[in-house]
Design a binder for these strands. Structure first.
Lengths: 217, 217
DNA sequence: AGGGTTGTGCCACTCGGTAACACAAGTGAT
DNA sequence: ATCACTTGTGTTACCGAGTGGCACAACCCT
């Protein structure tokens, strides 16, 4: 319907159908989960609403949690693609990573993307099992990216922790940005998110030198 | 049997029994999960082995995953206590956090602790649902610590990201240390883990300034 | 010893997730 | 158009995690 249409214009009919039910599942899931809560919605109800069998659901998504986290997962997939496409040429690794993330954000041109991400994040914050799953996914992406960096930078020592730590910083900053963005009133769009990301990234260097002065002093 | 004995010397009989079955569940779970795999072991089998009803299991642990992650959770609880007990007095926040973690590690004096953690981590690495749950727990600890820091440092701006980022760095470094430690041959003890932590923490400043030089140059 | 409290075992149940198999729908040929 | 072939879907039956309710036993206090 909304997101994948541009890229799926001329696919075989079968594939288009699959994408349509996939998108319907995502949208309906976000709606139902938001209305009745994640645990308050059974998979059967969701499948009834979309008129799909439970079997089909699990062919499309690996778990109940994943259907509501598709929007953010798209972003991370784009991030990995961007990182893959970039060549290291001067500047810090952290800057390279940040540039990839900005580019990935720029690619999320879909109309409802920001709203879906917002719904998804609110659900994640309210649902432990979704939170857990989300962090697991994040970590898998991080590991893929670490391996990619090691390859791209041609690092001799596989135990060199610097790429890993840089990625952790990127992730931490982005998480912060997402949290403040999703807490904003109204429906701030993608641009507002990018602004938050810039703020968060700007705070990174200070985090190391941040002095622990006692409050009385 | 092993860990909580020192502190539980003279508790009411009922509490001691509870702790004993708890410890038995942890040890048996680590053994069974390691032998047959996490998914290859049903809760019924575990409960039969410990001679406890499934109902009792869920009164002791909130999920099947948690029983195998108790050792690390003990460490994080100790970390929070240490952080709570320390007063900020000069030095960076990051150093304060690192000191708390070292102190928490020093408190894990239990004989089998290192071995249990190793088993637990290997299981976690091999079991997605355990990994997810573990990261969720880590994040909850992080949030508690962030709130604690904001209170202790008497920060005016609740959106100040520096404590959060510093904690993320601490966590990232510790995760790195755990991974390399658990991959070491033999059964390195707690001291070896502390050494790995020092190495990882030493790499943190470099992560920011790490240059992305192309491999050809 | 006896009454109150608290943990435990058993039973039945819901729901997420999977396997097997039959069937319908899309695809590509003649 | 129609035929075989491939591929996605629905149905049924099932397993295992996790929960609620209730009776019962074990501990604790006096």
């Amino acid at each position: 319907m909304t997101a994948t249409d541009a890229t799926a214009e001329r696919l075989p009919l079968r594939e288009r159908k699959k994408l349509r039910t996939r998108q319907a599942l995502i949208d309906t899931a976000l709606r139902l989960f938001t209305e009745r809560g994640f645990d308050g919605t059974t998979l059967d109800e969701l499948c009834d609403a979309v008129e799909v069998s439970k079997r089909t659901f699990f062919r499309t998504f690996p778990s109940k949690e994943d259907v509501a986290m598709a929007p953010t997962q798209d972003l991370w997939a784009a991030f990995l693609e961007e990182l893959e496409g970039r060549e290291p040429a001067g500047g810090t690794v952290l800057a390279l990573l940040q540039a990839s993330l900005y580019a990935a954000l720029d690619r999320m041109t879909d109309e409802g993307w920001a709203d879906r991400v917002r719904l998804s994040l609110r659900l994640t914050a309210a649902t432990p099992s979704m939170d857990a799953r989300g962090r697991h996914f994040c970590d898998r992406t991080l590991r893929t990216a670490v391996a990619l960096l090691h390859r791209k930078l041609d690092l001799q020592d596989p135990r060199d922790l610097r790429p890993r730590l840089a990625l952790d910083l990127l992730l931490a900053g982005f998480q912060c940005a997402l949290e403040t963005w999703v807490a904003q009133p109204g429906d701030p769009g993608r641009a507002a998110l990018v602004a938050e990301v810039r703020t968060a990234f700007a705070a990174i260097p200070d985090a190391l030198t941040f002095e622990a002065t006692p409050p009385s002093a």
